[in-house]
């Protein structure tokens, strides 16, 4: 599948933004994040900024962005519509919480809880847009929603820890929690990669043309000589060696460096922690971006069976 930069950026940025919202809200609810004007500005503003930048980016690939409001109507059947509704709904408690937090240094527990639930629901809806698509076997996979949720939470938490470290000391439990979240997220991703590499093909060319028992079948004459929408959108191919290399890069940037940063923060004095965690957060965002690019680039669509791919 064609990795459209607007969508790759959108899912990474909004995932981290919602993760950061969850981090701040839960942190305030359990009392480990102090509810002050400064902490509100430093944690909630970047979260809302990441979410909003992601959502704006997602409209860039639309043919008619001026009609985007229509996308809130079909939540009964469409995960894309549900995502839109959930994304907009999250703003309501998030803005109420942010307003009271920043202006009155007061925590609204109901708004904070609603923010957590709706932020998680939005990430889940984003993942389900892909996981519900049967013609793309690598997306129609049970690990896709957990990976989206885990990577959103992990990257948001890392950003949250890096920002919070500038305001107050980060305790060992918070650092350990970050390490556990991060490791669990990338372990899930690793499991996903193993699973799609060993998955049996869903169909072959002979099945695609309705003649399974007459096969094997092979494309000998393409229907057109030039590119078309189908090939541009669904005919994206990535070389195997590049795939392996990019997976390694994603893993090192997404997990290894940030995990080392968290461990280092546990061991060093508080003066180094903000800088170390910032590097860790930047790396995990970068790693997640590469992971998200691969999520698209590696996915194959069944329609390619009609364009010369022997099996998908």
């Amino acid at each position: 599948m064609h990795p459209a930069p607007s969508i790759v950026f959108f899912t990474t940025a909004s995932g981290a933004g919602y993760g950061l919202l969850v981090f701040a809200s839960l942190g305030a609810l359990v009392g480990s994040v102090p509810v002050t004007t400064t902490s509100g500005l430093v944690l909630l503003l970047p979260a809302l900024l990441l979410v909003t930048a992601g959502l704006c980016s997602s409209t860039l690939h639309l043919g008619h962005p001026e009609r985007a409001w229509r996308a809130f109507s079909q939540w009964r059947s469409s995960w894309l519509s549900r995502e839109g509704v959930a994304a907009v709904a999250t703003y309501v408690p998030a803005l109420v919480m942010a307003w009271l937090w920043i202006s009155a240094e007061r925590l609204a527990p109901i708004a904070a809880s609603a923010t957590v639930l709706l932020a998680l629901a939005t990430i889940y809806c984003t993942a389900m847009i892909y996981a519900s698509l049967q013609p793309i076997p690598r997306w129609h996979h049970p690990l896709v929603p957990p990976v989206y949720l885990a990577l959103g939470l992990a990257s948001g938490t890392l950003v949250g820890l890096a920002l919070a470290a500038r305001l107050f000391g980060i305790g060992t439990p918070a650092l350990l929690l970050g390490l556990i979240l991060l490791t669990a997220a990338w372990a899930l991703k690793w499991r996903y990669w193993q699973s799609i590499d060993s998955a049996a093909p869903v169909a072959g060319t002979a099945e695609a043309i309705g003649l399974p028992e007459r096969g094997p079948a092979r494309l000998v004459e393409a229907p057109h000589t030039e590119r078309n929408y189908i090939l541009d959108e669904m005919g994206y191919r990535i070389a195997r060696k590049h795939k392996q290399k990019l997976r390694r890069h994603a893993f090192v940037a997404g997990w290894a460096i940030p995990a080392a940063a968290l461990l280092l923060s546990l061991l060093t004095g508080p003066s180094l922690v903000p800088a170390v965690l910032s590097i860790g957060a930047a790396c995990t965002l970068l790693g997640t971006l590469v992971e998200r690019w691969l999520f698209f680039a590696e996915a194959e669509h069944l329609v390619m069976l009609y364009y010369g791919k022997g099996s998908v």
């Binding site: 079948a217 092979r218 494309l219 000998v220 229907p223």
Partner: peptide
């Protein structure tokens, strides 16, 4: 679109 296939 009309595709041409070889079936064995």
């Amino acid at each position: 679109r009309v595709h041409g296939f070889e079936v064995e």
